[in-house]
Design a protein around this nucleic acid. Structure first.
Lengths: 137, 137
DNA sequence: GTAATATCTATAGTCACTAGAGGTTGGGAA
DNA sequence: TTCCCAACCTCTAGTGACTATAGATATTAC
């Protein structure tokens, strides 16, 4: 049996966040000690690591709840789980592409700054005038 | 003189967001009509485009406020503005690097899915077991 | 003049947590 | 065994950057 603090240390998920996940239904309410403190089965470690890992990958709590639902019914086809992963992959790739465009523009902007006076500062000028951009965002 | 709706249409910033920016001090409170509706000078178009452009680049409202402060005093050296742009470039580049690692892992995860039963689903397995990862995140 | 649309303020909701107040419990040292 | 303090409890409010709603008033087109 683990206290919430031990669970927190061993998973890297903050105590308050663990309670939040319980409240949101991502993990089941655990047993309590005589003094009403949470006491977790070691299994919860695994569940919480699952959740943390998925969150680190940027998967939304909603999608994680779906995956948990799926994983409790081990006889269902896993194409739905795969679909969630693929969906997320697409989002990630879009994000990367977008950020790379921004990167390009920021490099352009800050490489042209002469560092003299704001009146002639390329950073502020180019942020004021969208037309200076090479591409849309 | 522009109404808030016209300003919104011409900049792509939502009406409610324009009022929010005013409340946050990003744009100055405009004159009002006899009936108390906001009436903007055409100049505000430029300011709001500046803000939108910077927000699209992911620059925080706080940083934008700093840039606006800078740009009102056109005799200051613009190195501070450049610093904000560079700082932001670094954040973007970190984000890109991180997302690319996630991308790699998601590709690995979802390419191994056999599509049979959840019990043997690689997506759920590998999300449960961080040890299957090739790299940390 | 009337009807439709736009605008006003003020308040509450969103997401995914995080922080704090004020009180109780658990476990090791004296 | 008693004490102490860190860890825990619940409940509420705060974060950031908006978004949405309600109910009232203004503007505009016909």
């Amino acid at each position: 049996m683990l206290s919430i603090g031990q669970l927190s240390k061993q998973t890297g998920v903050k105590v308050t966040t663990i309670r939040y996940y319980e409240q949101q239904g991502l993990i089941a309410p655990p047993h309590r000690s005589d003094g009403n403190q949470r006491r977790y089965e070691p299994d919860t470690l695994k569940q919480l690591r699952f959740i943390k890992h998925a969150r680190d990958l940027g998967i939304s709590p909603d999608a994680i709840a779906q995956l948990i639902d799926l994983s409790t019914d081990t006889d269902k086809p896993c194409s739905a789980a795969d679909e969630i992963a693929r969906q997320h992959l697409k989002t990630i790739q879009d994000k990367i592409a977008c950020l790379q465009r921004l990167e390009k523009e920021l490099i352009r902007i800050s490489s042209k700054c002469t560092g003299k006076r704001v009146g002639e500062c390329y950073v502020i000028q180019s942020l004021s005038d969208h037309g200076l951009c090479f591409e849309e965002h």
